[in-house]
Every structure is written in C-alpha cells, then in structure tokens.
Design a protein around this nucleic acid. Sequence first.
DNA 1: GCTTGTGAAGAGATTCACAGCA
DNA 2: TGCTGTGAATCTCTTCACAAGC
Lengths: 209, 209
Amino acid sequence: MATGHIPEATVARLPLYLRSLTELAAAGEPTTSSDVLAERAGVNAAKVRKDLSYLGTHGTRGVGYDVRHLTFEVSRALGVANTWPVVVCGLGNLGRALAKHTGFTERGFPVVAAIDVDPEIVGTTIDGLRVHSPDELAALVHDLEVAIGVIATPAEAAQETADLLVAAGVRSILDFSPRVVSVPDTVEVRMVDLSTELQILGFHLQRDL
Amino acid sequence: MATGHIPEATVARLPLYLRSLTELAAAGEPTTSSDVLAERAGVNAAKVRKDLSYLGTHGTRGVGYDVRHLTFEVSRALGVANTWPVVVCGLGNLGRALAKHTGFTERGFPVVAAIDVDPEIVGTTIDGLRVHSPDELAALVHDLEVAIGVIATPAEAAQETADLLVAAGVRSILDFSPRVVSVPDTVEVRMVDLSTELQILGFHLQRDL
DNA sequence: GCTTGTGAAGAGATTCACAGCA
DNA sequence: TGCTGTGAATCTCTTCACAAGC
C-alpha cells in the first residue's frame, strides 16, 4: 500500500512501535514479528500489521520484519530525523520538570527556551536554561526556530499563552493546563490533562464498586 | 435514555464538560446550552447533546440546560464525590512535580504516599510527604486505602513498579514512563507519554513542510 | 511449515437532520 | 421560535480470516 495517508490512530501508535524496535535492536534481535511487536506495544498483532502496511513497508512472509529496516521506515514516517526545538511556558512544578527532562532532547525535541511571567525568575538560569519574559517570546521563536510550544501555566494564563505562541508563529502546542485553548485551525494542539486522566480512572473505579 | 452504558469516548469528555460547567457556575450563569458547552470544551454541539443524553439528563427544549442540575448529573456520573487516594512511585523531576501538584487533591485525588528506591531520600519528607521504600508499598496501600498508582519511574523500573502496585492490590495505574507495562486485565492502565505526544506533533509538522 | 498483507466484516464514534416540545 | 434529544447515515478504527508467498 502507498504511503499516501496514514490514519491518526496509526500515527499515535508509531512511536510505540519505534520504541519497541529500538529495544529489540538494543537486545541484538535482527528480526521480529507482528506478534512480538504487538506484545511489546500492548496492542494486537493484526493492528500492528495493518498499521505497518500504511507505511508501505514490507516484511517477509513466513519470517517477519527486519528490525533495522523497519526502524528506518517507522523513523522516516515519524520524521524523527528532524529536530523540533521546544519552548516551555510556565515554570511551576510541572514546567520545571518538563524543562529539565532530558528524554526530550534525546528524541529530537530540545527545550531551547523557557518563559515565565514572574519577574523574580526572569533573567535567572534554571538547569542551564535562561528564563525569559513573555514579551521576548516572538524573538526567541524566530531566533531559535522554535517549532513547539508547551503550555505549563496555570489555567487562567493558558489562553493568553496560546495566543502569544500563535502570534509568534508556533504551529504546534502541547497543552498541560486544565483548560481548552482555542487557536486557528492551522495550529495543532494536543492536550495532556492529568486531572482528566485521574477522573477517567475514577469513573471506572466507581463503576467497579 | 437510560444510564446503562456510557461509551468510553464520552467518559473521556465528561471531565471537560464538568470543568466548563464549574466555570459557568462561577460566572453566575444559571443556564447554558449545548452550543456554549461545545465551544468551551472544544467539541461540536451535537456531540455534547449525545454525550449528555447517555447520562439520562434532561435539558429543556428551546431553553438549554440548568447549570446546577447538569453539574450534579455529570458529577454523579464521574463519581467525583468519591475520594481516591494516590501513591506516586518514582521521585525524579516529574514524580516530584506530580507529588507537589495541588490540583489533584482539589479534585478528589490526594497524593497520600510517595515511593522511591533511592536510599538517600527514603525516610525524608518532600513537601510534607514522607518518602517510603518499595517494600513498604503493600502496607501503605492497605493502610491508606490507595486506589491509584502513578508510575513516574525511569523506563527500566516501570514494569517492576507496576507488578508491585498490582500485587499490593492497586487496580488503576497512571503510567508516565515511556514503557508499556503489562498487567492483569482487571487492572486499568492509562498511559501518558510525553515523548509520544511530541512525536505525534512532529509527524504533523513534518507533513506540513 | 510460518508470518505477512489485506479485503471484508464488525464495532464504535461522529455527524446529520429533524421531530418533539417548552 | 429555539434548543434539545435521537434515529439514521456516515465515517473511522478494529478485528477477522485467509490467500499470498517465503
């Protein structure tokens, strides 16, 4: 099948496959199968095969997939060769943790700037990262070629922060605030709401009582 | 419609509606409409109406929904009257941020215990929270009636931590580690993988190039 | 033999569009 | 008139089941 269009649900699983493949490569496995990948990614084998078929990838019937080759295909589909600089907005507990998180840089998402409104910390350096004020955002985005904005502000500041990011030309936002932000539809937002996740777990706990 | 069975996709949106309703109540709005809720929750109005219909809730045709009454209905469906104590496992940057996060307690998910393997910090107190070693987990879960386990450990320790949580009787897990953990299917796991979210954004950035 | 790749069937979620009712 | 509630249509995602091919 051609690489034409990859379903969203598949895109969301590709990072899991990539991780599994990286682990398999590290373990020295030359080949693998949809069964093994399914087990590792926590999905079923038919789904793995269908997902991989969208990449136009070719395993070998009766044998499986070549780990190196498949890693290459999935990496290319995800565009992991690219580096997308990130700016973290809001340096509360969560923002600080995200800014320090080394796993991002390793995966091609270096945190290149931090923003906060608090004049006490603007100008200081946190873990090697200089803290800037919001009115420097546009210049930072331009100079450092920021591609992704992370919102880790309190709920009240979320929309305002999103507006600033959009105005500065950021086209992708990862929003940790407990507030839905509205942006032009040329901008992609992914919400990660921790309280919502807990409430969903709570719903099922209650139901199972 | 009867309250019999609420689709997962709907459950995942109920926390958004609840938040919107809380904001509307705070703003003194006595009634609202599916249009307003849709706007605030970032979905469309038909979806709001269909979702709410699963709660057996009744708005008033031609008028809208009573904010107080609807808040009550959604709260009951989500079971927010319950309190579900949380244990945070792994006190790196993210774990610490989660342990400190005050929003959880406010929403009925108090962090009642913290676990880490590092003997340097076991026995110390971080933000009023005593740090325990993993072999105290079972007793803590029992004594403090822990309902939810949060995994914020490095990837290598994730499965082991999940096993400990399950053995201790925890039935709901929120997993922040970049690793799929396997658990009995009586246990519900929700994964929140920050790198995966960034990679999904990266995929779309690349595509739009 | 064994495992992929994929049409076809099935399940689930979204959207439409309009009847029902204050 | 205006907005809800909901069957029906549509779209999307998942799963099945088996032919294709090493």
